[in-house]
Structure formats: structure tokens, C-alpha cells
Design a protein around this nucleic acid. Structure first.
Length: 281
DNA sequence: CTGTAATCCTGCGAGC
DNA sequence: TGCTCGCAGGATTACA
């Protein structure tokens, strides 16, 4: 579910609720997540104060006093929230961390179980894991570097935007929205974008992510932030999930096709397909 | 290097 | 009403 704006919203919501509080222990459910919680980690979180909570790409990093870090990924349906301890535990809650004086606990809930919760004992170990998977954050990128990253391949633009090792944090929704703002078809070969289009794309990616964060992310089905609030940005989508509805710019019907294995929404008038090679005559 | 499909899961809406 | 099918904010792996 969650892309960068949703993950950022969770982190911002949780920051005042977690930082400075101690984790008292951990309770793990029977069903396995992508990464199973290791029993050896129990002692590593016990009575550890949370010193910081950060985001990198779509990952949530919860730093502990010891120098270890809890690394959380929300997958498609993950939720990370602080609840009163006495509040009923919802279905699909897989990991719980009682906090502070025991009146509250941090709960990880994930219907589809594509998410994960893991512990890294040192920063170098954590950095190695993340660096192998993530390119730079999409904000404040040097235009020349952005251009290099995007145009280094013949893959489709959509595939490149979704590739976390190129730019971290963009997912299916915001890739489509950024392509729309750029006026480029998501199936366009990345190396064929003009310098102007690449620059427009850089700005569009930043703009759509920033606006979405301001709107506390998008809730399509079950996303909620760290305090349980839904997002609002879904009301501002130009193309995502708007198949058949009018393009906000030109009123042509929004279309959907599969690109890079994902449904990709676009306006055929505002985002024309690359011209086919015409036969020489 | 590409693209595609399958895989990990559960739930929900569309269509019959 | 009840069933099956396909699809869903992600990431990884196998294979052509």
C-alpha cells in the first residue's frame, strides 16, 4: 500500500509517540511475515529506549539506545501504530512492543503479510542492507545526477520509477501521477526522454511526493498513519485509479494499461506514446 | 541487459 | 444470495 508519502506520514505520526520511550519487550504472533522475527532479538529490544525514528525509501527505521535499529517495511497492507494497551488487538496484528509504563504499545498489523519487522544490531549492517536496495532519496537531487540515473537504461520510464535502486520511495500511484505531470507516457523508453522532459520529471516527482505528504498520503483501502488517521491525497489523483474518467487537463478519458507488470494510468492526449519508427521510403 | 510471470498473502468488488 | 475471478500502495526470484 504505502509509498514514500504514506511511510513518511507514519514516521511523523510516531515520532512524538515513540522517541524517548522504552520498549519493554515484544510479543510475536504465530503467523510468519516475510522476515520471521528471531527469538534472539527479544533481548535486544528489551528495555531499550527509542532514540529516533527515521524513513529511508519505503523503510521505517526505529533507532534504539544500544545502537541497534528496528527496520520495518509495510509491504502492501502494513500498519504501524501506537495503541492503548487495553485496546482490543485487531486481527492480523503480528508484532507488539509494550512501551514505557505499560499503558501503550506499538503494534504492527499487516493483512497480506508482505511486510516485515527485523532488527539490525549495528549501523554498518543496516546501511549495507539498505544501500544494496535503495538509490538516493528523491528530494533535492542534483539535476545532472537525476538525469544520469533516469536515462541510463532502455527500460520503460514506469519501470525505472518503480525501481527502488534508481530512486527510493516512488511506487505505482506516484509513478503514474509524476508521469502525468511531466506529460510523458509511462511506457516511454527512459533513455529517449529529452533533457527538458527529464528536468520536468525531476520536479514532478518532488512535487507529487511533497503534496502527498502534505495530504498525509493516500488511502485506497486500508492505509492509516501512525495515529490511525487515513490519508487524503487520493482525492487529488489526476490519473491513478481514474480509468474512464476525464483527464483534469483535457477531459479525454483516462486509460489504463499494464507496464512493468503494474497497472499504469495515463491520458493518451496529454501523454502521447512515442512515435513508432516510420519506414524509410 | 530486457521483459514477463510467478511467488509470498488476504480481502473485496465485479460479474455471472 | 452465492460463487469464482481478478486485482490490489511491494519486492524478489526464476526464466526466456
Amino acid at each position: 500500500m504505502p509509498e514514500l508519502p504514506e511511510v513518511e506520514t507514519v514516521v511523523r505520526d510516531l515520532r512524538p509517540l515513540l522517541v524517548g520511550k522504552a520498549i519493554r519487550g515484544v510479543a510475536v504472533g504465530a503467523r510468519k511475515l516475510r522476515q520471521a522475527w528471531l527469538p534472539a532479538w527479544d533481548a535486544k529490544v528489551q528495555n531499550q529506549k527509542v532514540t529516533a525514528i527515521r524513513r529511508r525509501g519505503k523503510w521505517i527505521l526505529i533507532d534504539l539506545k544500544s545502537g541497534a535499529t528496528l527496520l520495518v517495511h509495510l509491504g502492501m497492507t502494513g500498519q504501524l501504530r501506537v495503541h492503548p494497551m487495553k485496546e482490543e488487538v485487531e486481527d492480523h496484528t503480528h508484532v507488539r512492543f509494550p512501551l514505557g509504563d505499560g499503558k501503550q504499545e506499538l503494534r504492527f498489523r499487516d493483512i497480506r503479510r508482505f511486510g516485515s519487522v527485523a532488527l539490525f544490531e549495528s549501523q554498518p549492517e543496516l546501511d549495507a542492507f539498505l544501500d544494496a536496495r535503495l538509490g538516493p532519496e528523491p528530494f533535492g537531487l542534483d539535476p545532472a545526477l537525476f538525469r544520469e540515473l533516469i536515462t541510463a537504461t532502455t527500460r520503460t520510464l514506469k519501470a525505472v520509477l518503480l525501481d527502488q535502486t534508481v530512486i527510493a520511495g516512488v511506487g505505482n500511484i506516484y509513478a503514474d501521477e509524476a508521469c502525468f505531470l511531466t506529460g510523458v507516457h509511462p511506457g516511454r523508453r527512459a533513455n529517449t526522454l529529452t533533457a527538458e522532459q527529464v528536468e520536468k520529471l525531476r520536479v514532478a516527482v518532488e512535487r507529487v511526493l511533497t503534496s502527498a505528504i502534505a495530504g498525509r498520503g493516500s488511502t485506497i483501502r486500508n492505509y492509516v498513519g501512525g495515529s490511525g488517521l487515513k490519508g487524503t491525497y487520493q482525492a487529488r489523483f489526476n490519473v491513478y485509479g481514474r480509468t474512464g474518467e476525464p483527464c483534469p487537463t483535457c477531459a479525454a478519458a483516462v486509460r489504463v494499461v499494464t507496464i512493468a507488470g503494474r497497472s499504469s494510468h495515463f491520458c493518451a492526449a496529454c501523454q502521447p506514446e512515442a512515435k513508432k519508427k516510420s519506414k524509410p521510403r
